[in-house]
Design a protein around this nucleic acid. Structure first.
Lengths: 345, 345
DNA sequence: CAAAGTTGTCAAAGCGCTTTGGAATGTCGT
DNA sequence: ACGACATTCCAAAGCGCTTTGACAACTTTG
């Protein structure tokens, strides 16, 4: 069923039927009702491609997911972010297109998306420092919103980020205030802007507390469970091991916890763990009784909000850029406690 | 840059340019080379929508993700499956469209996808028993491939599944052979076909081993870490607790493990854990030294294979239906061991 | 050397929609 | 009763591509 058939069926012109369905005022309410009813009865939905061709926009939003070829790692927050964004898109009649790409072909992918008119805008995921994608997107005039920020980019752009610096600064101070003097940072990949900010928050709090900054207590890598486990193991083997860990994600934290368990160390007693928590739907932090002491911020809500910002941006491309900085919320869990007293050792 | 501009720039007709780029034989190699070079120089890519309108297919594949409104749960395998599928799509010039939908609007979403001509085919995720989507898709003639199977559907359809029955039967036998007589099943949602099969594999091996089937040792639910933890805790509180757990996913297994750790029970010594493992990129099973004894099958590879099957199906809609049943691979971890000897209790 | 293929190219139609610029019809003031 | 003005509808153009059918310009054949 297409427009032509439907309109001849109704004895109306295509123009009138189209206007009736799209809510234009120059069609009487009587005929509009008639048209709408017939459209429903015949399950008519305008052909997306034809509509796009005619209007010049695709009502589709692109998400380019860079999969590092080395690690072949899919960011675990991906699913929840998409779920949040998808909700917003559905509410506004937008489709969502996902493109998986290796790091090399990143630029080409955006160019192609633009040249082919496949999307009206894109969400930039996992921004790096001085991320070259932003200049590219500005140049080719493809609307975008950044989930995160890119330090070093001076031109304004629209972004939504969590205050990672603050969260990791608070977390470090919190652990220091519990008496911990050897606090390890199990960070995400420090090619990512958020990881850089997290480290800087961590370091500034260490300095503020008068604690040394020890590179041996800092690690960077893909945020897998195995990574958390391996790093914790390596650090706990040190002569002067950390008494507290600060993890980049709850999945890392789980790995750290496993390392403790294997050694018979009690989390929150012998060794503390604090973590950032993205509120992943399949890996909750224990609900009523949080397991991990955490700074949390829902990536799902972020997805919904970023999607909304992008839709707004597409509809008003010349509006001033909006920036949202969300504060992570502190939850006290059982994974942290006072630094163990070694005076009796 | 569009076809018209490019062709007038070259002093050729649109026809010739189009044919040259699409590899038709009736254009001389000399002009073809000229056209290809110019296209590259001007970064010309045919407009997706126009191309789609003209050819009648969208070169786009749909993934409809049902998010149960109650649980608001995003399946954690989603990201890895997409990464695998995305690779295949990219190689064949297909785009990937993702639609998030609540359980109610599922049927409408497929109808709309079809009516709008938005996709050439869809992947059916998480099939249920007697899944009504298959009949719907057959009726509206939208090509599809099922990731999993749907018990009760008699008409042939194309699917790729893991032999869940076998895997869980083997796992149960394995645990029984270690002397476990109280083996708990921490299953996924038993509205899902795969979970039903897993249970039946589990039960058949219990029967075969002459062990009783105790509903108190079986649970069903969304496969979160918290779920695994809660179920394990509840069961370990029983008068006659299980000595082994069989988990539906490595994430559940992590939760079970946490429950053991909290109680000072040693995995593989006091209580065993076996699990199914989807080989999630962010939650590996320890690499060289597997943590969990597991039956594993890469969901990423499944994604790539399903995508390929769907593309084939779209290109040859009348070809016979293909079914692939993959066997899960056994890996021995440290999480299982002989049932503890209670004779000295 | 005319008739019959080949080869390389093109003009134009068509995909299903939106939108422009009329054109009918009806209503109203005078 | 007549022009003015809304109101309601429509024919046709156009979005950027593919594809059909035709046509020159060459080759080859008898």
């Amino acid at each position: 069923m297409n427009l032509k058939e439907l309109s001849s069926l109704l004895g109306l012109s295509q123009t009138t039927v189209s206007r009736a369905l799209n809510g234009y005022p120059e069609v009487s309410e009587k005929t509009r009702a008639r048209v709408v009813k017939a459209a429903q009865a015949h399950a008519y939905s305008p052909n997306t491609r034809a509509q796009g061709l005619a209007t010049g926009h695709s009502k589709c939003i692109g998400h380019v997911i860079s999969v590092s070829d080395s690690a072949e790692m899919v960011n675990p927050i991906f699913g929840d972010f998409m779920a949040g964004a998808g909700e917003t898109y559905a509410a506004h009649g937008y489709d969502m297109m996902v493109t998986r790409v290796g790091a090399q072909d990143e630029a080409d992918t955006y160019l192609s998306l633009k040249a082919r008119g496949a999307v009206d805008g894109v969400v930039v995921h996992a921004p790096r420092r001085n991320d070259s994608r932003l200049a590219l997107l500005d140049k080719i005039d493809l609307p975008y919103v950044v989930h995160g920020r890119s330090t070093g980019i001076k031109r304004p752009y629209t972004w939504l980020d969590v205050n990672n610096t603050r969260a990791f600064s608070e977390a470090t101070s919190y652990l220091a205030s519990l008496g911990h003097r050897r606090i390890a940072l199990i960070n995400g990949p420090e090619t990512m802007d958020f990881a850089i900010r997290r480290r800087s928050g961590y370091e500034s709090s260490l300095r503020f507390a008068g604690l040394p900054i020890d590179p041996a207590l800092m690690s960077t890598g893909e945020m897998t469970e195995g990574y958390g486990h391996a790093q914790a193991n390596a650090m706990l083997d040190m002569d002067n091991p950390p008494t507290a860990f600060l993890a980049a994600s709850i999945i890392c934290a789980a790995g750290i916890r496993r390392a403790l368990d294997e050694r018979g160390l009690r989390p929150g007693k012998d060794v503390s763990i604090a973590t950032f928590d993205d509120c992943l739907s399949y890996f909750g932090n224990g609900g009523d009784q949080p397991v991990f002491t955490a700074w949390q911020s829902s990536v799902r809500l972020a997805g919904a909000a970023v999607a909304q910002m992008l839709i707004d941006r597409i509809q008003a491309p010349n509006a001033p850029h909006i920036n949202e900085l969300w504060e992570a919320e502190f939850v006290a869990g059982t994974s942290t406690g006072p630094a163990p007293d070694h005076s009796k050792d």
